[in-house]
Simulated scan of single mutants.
Amino acid sequence: MWKKKSVEKFSVMPYLSLFLSCMLWMFYALPIVKPHKTPVLTINTAGAAIELGYIFVYFLCSTGTTRVRAMLLLVLELIFVAAVVVVVLSIHITRERRATVIGIICIVARMLAYIAPLSILGTVIRTKSVEYMPLHLSIVYFFNGLSWTLYSFIDFDANILVSRASFIISNLFCF
């Protein structure tokens, strides 16, 4: 995108879905929801910052309705995360229940974040070209999911385990 100054056939959805997922996992890792999850908070804060960088580049390289659509989706995501935070913190439930509720939302968001890049498979099959799905990126995604799955066993966290293990399984189909 940056070299050609155009988004061509690239979609903003993988970037937005991963940004949404990172923001929700950041909330999950806060001490008021799930204490002692500093690695989850740190990694997802860095991930959200990186995704914001990608989204910014997408905005710079897109034009017209593509840019407006991407901005609208970003604003809707921010509103959704704010609503989740307000609702979950305003209902009076235990910390464990709060972690379960946010954990389930995070699992769904992470699965969406992992499904978004897999949507490229349609383009790969249709064009019979892997230009839009580089192998090294798939391998990095696979090992990322594997490392987080292993982390979830250290201080057993079912929410992290389910969200990452589902990605490993879906990624195996890409190889």
Rank of each mutant, 00 (worst) to 15 (best):
M1N: 07
W2L: 13
W2K: 11
W2I: 15
K3P: 00
K4F: 11
K5V: 08
K5I: 04
S6R: 07
E8N: 09
F10K: 03
S11I: 06
P14N: 08
P14M: 06
Y15V: 11
L16F: 13
S17R: 07
S17K: 07
S17D: 08
S17F: 15
L18V: 15
L18P: 01
F19G: 05
S21C: 15
S21H: 09
S21P: 12
C22V: 09
C22E: 02
W25V: 09
M26K: 10
F27R: 03
Y28G: 06
L30I: 02
P31W: 03
V33K: 07
V33Q: 08
V33H: 11
K34E: 14
K34P: 04
P35W: 13
K37W: 08
T38C: 00
V40S: 05
T42A: 13
T42D: 01
N44I: 10
T45F: 13
A46N: 05
G47R: 10
G47T: 12
A48P: 08
G53T: 15
G53E: 06
Y54N: 14
Y54C: 15
F56M: 09
V57P: 01
T63N: 06
G64Q: 03
R67L: 14
V68A: 11
V68M: 12
V68E: 06
R69T: 14
M71Q: 11
L72N: 04
L73F: 13
E77P: 00
E77N: 11
I79Q: 00
I79D: 00
A83R: 00
A83V: 08
V84W: 00
V84G: 00
V85C: 03
V85W: 14
V86D: 05
V86S: 05
V88M: 14
L89N: 15
S90G: 09
R95P: 09
R95I: 15
E96C: 04
R97Y: 11
R97E: 12
R97V: 12
T100P: 00
I102A: 04
I104R: 02
I105V: 15
I107L: 07
I107T: 09
I107N: 09
V108N: 00
A109I: 09
A113F: 10
Y114N: 13
I115N: 00
P117E: 02
L118I: 14
S119C: 04
I120A: 09
L121N: 03
G122C: 00
G122I: 03
G122H: 04
T123S: 05
T123F: 01
T127L: 12
S129N: 14
E131S: 08
E131T: 12
Y132V: 04
Y132D: 09
M133T: 00
P134K: 08
S138L: 08
S138N: 14
Y141A: 10
Y141L: 05
F143W: 13
N144D: 11
G145H: 11
G145E: 02
L146V: 15
S147V: 15
W148A: 11
T149Y: 10
T149M: 06
Y151W: 12
S152T: 11
I154K: 03
D155Y: 02
F156G: 03
N159F: 15
V162C: 06
V162Y: 06
A165K: 05
S166A: 15
S166H: 03
F167D: 12
I168K: 02
C174K: 08
C174I: 14
